[in-house]
Amino acid sequence: MYGWIWRHLPGPVAVRAALAVVLLLGAVALLMFVVFPWAEPLLPFNDVAVDPS
């Protein structure tokens, strides 16, 4: 998977490394600002209130 991505990045090694870092940061940002805020309410870590009976 990662080998495939690396082979399909254009340019010399330095450019490829820079592109790989950009891709990595993009993936982390996507997780932090889109995926995790969406997934968080579905997970049981944030229930602090008692349910009104």
Partner: peptide
Amino acid sequence: VRTFGEVLITLGVVVLLFVVYE
């Protein structure tokens, strides 16, 4: 097998990132 391993490692990193996020 290699792709499967890479997917597992990636999922582990994602879980760690979720802890950092939380």
